[in-house]
Simulated assay, not measured.
Amino acid sequence: MKKLDEEKIIEIFQKKNQRKSFVPEDVEVFRIGNELCISSIDTLVESTDVPPQMKFSEIARKSVVSAVSDFAAKGVRPSFAIISVIIPRKVSLKKVNELASGFANAAREFNIKILGGDTNEGKEIAISVALFGFAKKIAKRSGAKINDRIFVTGEFGNSAAGLQILLRGKKADNTFKKTAINSVKKPQCRLEFGVKNQNKFSSSMDSSDGLSTCLNEMAKQSNKQFFIDKLPANPKLFEFASKNGLDPVDLIFNGGEEYEIVFTASPRNVKKLQVFAKKSKTNLIEIGRVIQGKGVVLLNNDKKIILKDKGWRHFK
């Protein structure tokens, strides 16, 4: 009998709803008249997503950022949101006001209209953000072609390092400590980059479950091999890992909690992508290329290793 995990639970739900050929995506797509309606829902849970040091305004914003990041990877601008909030009875009026301010500021940041939602009582904070938008098409996880280049829109490993600092007291120099903690408490997503460059993506995915998860899923759906020859990390991450006895490759590929876009693109589009990245101050990093084969192979210290999917999985 297969172990009950997130993948198995989703499989059960899909079969009961008669969706036997379900292919996972970052968003759901359905047609209303001549338009495609794009929707997604993302849930933040205090015990798994929130370190104790986060302000309530930061918690609210992070819940919106994690949802918007799915739209960014598909190249779609969200228009509307419905938000469900579970709040413990002990929460003060001041903290409720902080939550409300966090939602309002995030709505302004991403130009989203919050239509309403639901409020309930529970043992810990849980926030579900449902987004809706419209588009003519989306960038899918499949579609990578041989010789396409593989890109990410920012550094990886900072969030994993930040959690090690916040939760386990790991040591870091002041500059990297600030970068790492900010990546946890004030995450960024790349909505404008995704919306402006969707037509240049041959495949694309949100990275929040971990870079190894992303790369393996995209390679699988595209039926190609992803060859990775560059680690997209802050040089200070390697110093941090060495100082604290941590594996930098694990932090970079399996930590999760980054809200970057991972995508493939034809070599003919690389220059245009680089120009837009410079103009928009996006840290675009080319990390590899698509080749014939299956899975993900990482070249690290002149050694080729199979990069397995070891990103975040609920119930794992």
Rank of each mutant, 00 (worst) to 15 (best):
D42Y: 15
K16I: 08
F13P: 02
E28P: 00
C37R: 13
S39N: 08
K20R: 01
L4S: 00
S21H: 13
N34K: 13
D26Y: 05
S40Y: 03
D42N: 14
R31L: 03
K16D: 09
K20F: 13
E35C: 05
E7H: 05
K20M: 07
K16M: 09
E6G: 08
L36A: 01
E25Q: 11
E6L: 04
N17G: 02
P24G: 02
K8R: 12
G33P: 04
N34T: 07
V29D: 07
E7V: 05
I9G: 06
S39V: 15
I10P: 02
D42T: 15
L36H: 04
K8A: 11
E35F: 03
L4E: 02
F13C: 12
F22D: 02
I9K: 10
Q14Y: 01
N34Y: 05
S40T: 15
I38G: 03
I10C: 03
V29Q: 10
I9P: 06
C37Q: 11
Q14S: 09
I12P: 09
E25P: 00
K8D: 04
S21E: 13
I10H: 01
D5P: 09
I41H: 08
F30W: 02
V29E: 12
S40Q: 03
D42F: 15
E7G: 00
F30Q: 03
P24S: 01
E35K: 15
I12N: 06
V27A: 03
D26P: 09
D42A: 13
I12C: 09
P24I: 00
F22M: 00
V27I: 11
K8V: 13
